[in-house]
Amino acid sequence: MREIEFNDIVKAVRDIIVHCGTDLPQDTYDALKEAMENEKSPVSKEVIRQILENADIAKDEKRPLCQDTGLAVFFVKVGEDVKVKGGLLKDAINKGTEQGYTDAYLRASTCEPFSRANLKDTVGYNLPAIIHFDIVAGDKIDIEYAAKGGGSENVSRARVFPPAAGKAGIINYVKEVISDAGGNPCPPITVGVGIGGTFEKACISSKHALFRDIGSVNEDEEMAEMEKEILEEINKLGIGAMGMGGTKTALAVHIESNPCHIASLPVSVNVQCHSSRHTHITI
């Protein structure tokens, strides 16, 4: 059994949060650059130019990329042969989240659902983090992290279709969700699509799909084809950067597909804004 110190996890989580707050990941930066070069609308081209300039300023001056520094979302794979010494893994991740958000002057955006009271002085600064755990073989802890903003989360949707809806039904649904969203989720977006499983499995899969690097190819050939097809359809909508009209509404579509019940075809669409702040570490 390998032992990992509680405080080492706190520090590792704190560090990735600080880094993601100000440094746009290379995959996102490159995808935006390519989008700017290929965008046909001069207005949208200028918007993407501002987005890239913003990323340069944020990195050079260590300023948050966006004022919406998100809720902290984690996918954590815990090796069966790991023991955390000195506390619970969940507490370490939350403590690291609080430290990272405080140290980097990021915004505390968690609140009570109805009173809307900010939780920074009660539960903790931008706490609780949203953590999805999985148990795997091995003696390591694998942490995927993303800062998830509210604007793009607000346009996300899920629906359980009858099986007969098939691929065509799913493609139409994704297109409808993105069309209705317009400029609200801060395009150029990344679209996460979760297919199959149960209702909640589809939702979690659509979220996890957003953690994949933009530009990476789906290992499942059929899904890779479907991603291409949906991306093409979305970019025909004409929404453009920040909804100003253009040819680059989405940078990528990522699909995660799961086996499902014989009676249902669940689908979830989770949208990520252009500031796709995500990273991955192994401890």
């Binding site: 100000t22 918007v47 501002q50 987005i51 300039e53 913003n54 300023i57 944020a58 001056e61 300023r63 948050p64 990329l65 966006c66 004022q67 919406d68 903003g149 604007g151 400029g183 801060c186 920040m242 909804g243 100003m244 804004c273 252009h274 500031s275």
Partner: peptide, 13 residues
């Protein structure tokens, strides 16, 4: 007016 969403560092300056 629309300002560029997600350009918080640039606009903050």
């Amino acid at each position: 007016f629309g300002a560029t969403g997600g350009a918080g560092a640039l606009l903050g300056k």
